[in-house]
């Protein structure tokens, strides 16, 4: 890994203004992404992972959102970046793809028009050159007849093709970072694998760093080198994937891993985590997972800090003493 991170997020706190008051959706979120690195953010829906991604590009509604902290990207703080500057980051340096390609693509414009406008926004090219580059981009995401798809409307394509087109739009300007928010959730299982392979391949080829936002640990295990676990608006663990799969340090990560069907032993009953996530309005001051945690002690009621532990960053004061099960045993991992 190189020294200077591509993206360095420090103390990101997002709050929504609702009916005169405000609720904190995320608090003190810190992580970094190195150039070309593939990082996954995992957590249940509502943990704040999606809005974290959106906040990096300033895509949250400005009137009702307040973002604190900073997100340094190539020497610029993305938090509070004026729209005139942010425009040159969006689509050019950082791109984003979304969960549902059907609704993320504009139904009344052709795929080609939608790729073309990205190229025309960021590069000084004429329409003919833009068309060539757009078709090239469609070919590079493995679309069989790119010229035909270029002139097609989104509703004329299959779900997998739409997501490929979406990826082509995102990567056409060869950004440094691609934020992929649940890019495969809406797709068939077989298509999912293809899209993931494609993202891996393109990220390696273009040197694009990937920030994978998903609730699917399987996807992260396959694609990422590092995973960040979020719970109730906080980062609870940040660790290399290989190490986290075998020996997670936070009880919540462990719980997530053990409820993973694909990696657990065949035939075993999947343990799920009992209880509910606390609501944003009555967040406990101490460990937010404590209420559902099997290893809870009285000291868990005190605020938890995130600290290094064996190559991980963990927000649990008992990380030193707990030995938690992962998705794989040491032996399986070695094999």
């Amino acid at each position: 890994m190189s020294d200077a991170p591509l993206l360095d997020v420090r103390g990101l706190g997002i709050s929504f203004l609702i009916g005169g008051g405000s609720v904190h959706a995320t608090q003190d979120v810190s992580f970094s992404v190195q150039p070309g690195e593939r990082v996954g953010i995992v957590g249940e829906s509502g943990c704040g992972k999606t809005i974290t991604g959106l906040s990096l590009l300033g895509l949250l509604p400005r009137a009702t959102t307040h973002v604190a902290g900073q997100a340094m990207f190539e020497g610029e703080n993305l938090v509070g970046l004026p729209l005139s500057r942010m425009r040159h980051v969006r689509g050019r340096k950082i791109s984003m793809i979304f969960q549902e390609p059907m609704s993320a693509l504009d139904p009344v414009f052709t795929i080609g028009q939608q790729i073309g406008e990205t190229i025309l926004t960021h590069f000084k090219v004429d329409k003919k050159q833009a068309r060539e580059r757009a078709i090239e981009a469609l070919a590079s995401v493995g679309i069989p007849s790119p010229a035909r798809v270029h002139d097609s409307y989104p509703h004329q394509l299959s779900g997998g093709m739409r997501q490929r087109a979406m990826i082509a739009i995102a990567l056409v300007c060869e950004p440094k970072l691609l934020i992929a928010d649940e890019p495969t959730t809406a797709l068939d299982v077989t298509i999912q694998a293809q899209i993931i392979d494609l993202l891996m391949e393109l990220s390696a080829k273009q040197g694009t760093a990937l920030l994978f936002i998903t609730h699917d640990l399987g996807v992260i295990a396959e694609t990422c080198t590092r995973m960040i676990t979020m719970y109730a608006g906080q980062v609870v663990e940040d660790a290399p994937v290989d190490s986290a799969l075998v020996r997670p340090r936070h009880p919540y990560t462990s719980g997530l891993l053990r409820s993973l069907p694909r990696l657990s032993a065949r035939g075993a009953v999947l343990p799920s985590i009992a209880g509910r996530v606390p609501t944003l309005r009555d967040m406990p001051t101490g460990c937010r997972f404590a209420e559902r945690c099997a290893h809870r002690q009285e000291a868990c009621a005190a605020p938890q800090v995130i600290e290094p532990a064996g190559g991980h960053l963990v927000r649990c004061w008992r990380h030193g003493e707990l030995v938690l099960p992962g998705a794989l045993t040491d032996r399986e991992a070695a094999a």
């Binding site: 609720v23 509502g46 704040g48 609501t279 944003l280 309005r281």
Partner: peptide, 10 residues
């Protein structure tokens, strides 16, 4: 997030 908000006291 939405679930959490709807839980808020109306």
């Amino acid at each position: 997030m939405s679930a959490a908000v709807s839980d808020a006291v109306l």
